[in-house]
Design a protein around this nucleic acid. Structure first.
Lengths: 224, 224
DNA sequence: TGACATTAGTCACAGGACGTGACTAATTCG
DNA sequence: CGAATTAGTCACGTCCTGTGACTAATGTCA
């Protein structure tokens, strides 16, 4: 967010960086540079001959720590809603950051759990909701949950991540059965003892070749 | 596509209008105004204080006949790929037009089945593929297929529409069973005799309240 | 040391969903 | 009238899913 002071850009790139904090999703916000009280989603204008994705990556790097583990476009927003930049269009990107990434220093950036997000500009509110919806929707098409976990994890941790992202509880046996059928993880030799109770085996993400497995349509899921 | 002659817009709205022609999806293309030989996706710049969706609607209306039955944003495209306008960003919309809508007069517009689409500018090729992917992906979340059919249709027609959109054959009994479970259609009193064979009952789209029906996750569908 | 609480991991059953082929029903054509 | 054609339904076997109960391995505390 460097060079947005004087010009009014025709379009901006806005980035929604998400991570897991406790048992909730959290988003990275940034203090608005003019009025130090408001919080905004990190954004900037594209630089000459910079692609949109590159701009999003640059914003993410300068805001958080390192490269986000996943980055996908949410869409273009505008349609009359107000935005800190007063630009006409904002192209939004959603990114995932592994849990445990330290909150960036300086007090300019901070993580907010989704239920504690302060008031944002209308367009940025839409962008945030859109980004969360995209992530939730990608869950069963793309191994999103693994991007939030460290390389090695217990199956209970993985299940909790799925529950966090889907917003509902899952049954342990069902979850593991589905996991096994999907050939997504492989066990390691290591075990972790987490306080009391039996130690848990550690797994790593390791997708295998899949059977085509073309099941029929699920009109089931039609809503309205 | 009126006012794009002299200025080089910073962003454009591109519209992918799809319909069913025979047993294939078809897209509406437009002759490039400068070189009368190339074909392009309909596009234009936004007008002052016009929203993106309104621009897409305007383009659709002027290109095709009437309002599209469905319109959804595909995303923002750019990232160095060439576009007829030389604009930096194109925001793409996908729209569905009921089958049987007559090809617009004048020879400026024409329907191309997906396998017959001529070469397009690189960015527009990406946009077209993205739009088709969006539609195919929305199939099991949104009653897209009904937007391509007339208000009344036979179940065989509906099944053929699903087969066209999904790109694979479906079994008659399975399809009807799923349809019944989804409470999406209701029978009318009318029947249609289509040449030889038993007449088919006509149905109309009429979604009912749904049981919550929260089924478990389908890790199944994970690909990579 | 031994019972208990706690967490990990597995099993097995019942009910539902799905793929499939065969069946009946109603019409046109010759 | 019978054959061909298309619509619509049924029933069976298989697989998938929700679920509760079970075993296993550890820490805690008397």
């Amino acid at each position: 967010m460097a060079d947005r002071k004087n010009r009014r850009p025709s379009s901006t790139i806005d980035v929604v960086l998400l991570t897991a904090v406790g048992s909730q999703l959290a988003v990275l916000l940034c203090r608005a540079p003019e009025t130090r009280e408001k919080w905004v989603l990190p954004w900037d204008a594209m630089r000459p001959s910079e692609t949109m994705e590159a701009t999003a990556g640059r914003i993410a790097r300068s805001a958080s720590v390192g490269e986000p583990a996943w980055l996908e476009q949410v869409g273009a927003f505008g349609d009359g809603k107000r935005h800190p930049s007063e630009s006409e269009i904002s192209v939004a990107y959603a990114g995932l950051v592994p849990m445990g990434t330290p909150s960036p220093v300086g007090g300019v950036y901070a993580w907010f759990t989704l239920s504690d997000v302060p008031q944002l500009a209308p367009r940025q509110r839409l962008i945030l909701d859109g980004a969360v919806a995209i992530i939730r929707g990608r869950m069963d098409q793309s191994p999103v949950a693994f991007r939030l976990l460290p390389q090695m994890f217990t199956l209970t941790e993985l299940q909790q991540m799925y529950e966090l992202l889907l917003g509902k509880r899952l049954h342990k046996a069902s979850f593991r059965r589905a996991l096994q059928a999907a050939w997504l993880v492989e066990p390691t030799d290591e075990w972790r003892s987490e306080g009391r109770g039996r130690p848990a085996q550690l797994y790593r993400y390791s997708p295998r070749k899949r059977r085509p497995a073309q099941r029929g349509i699920r009109l089931d899921l039609l809503s309205s």
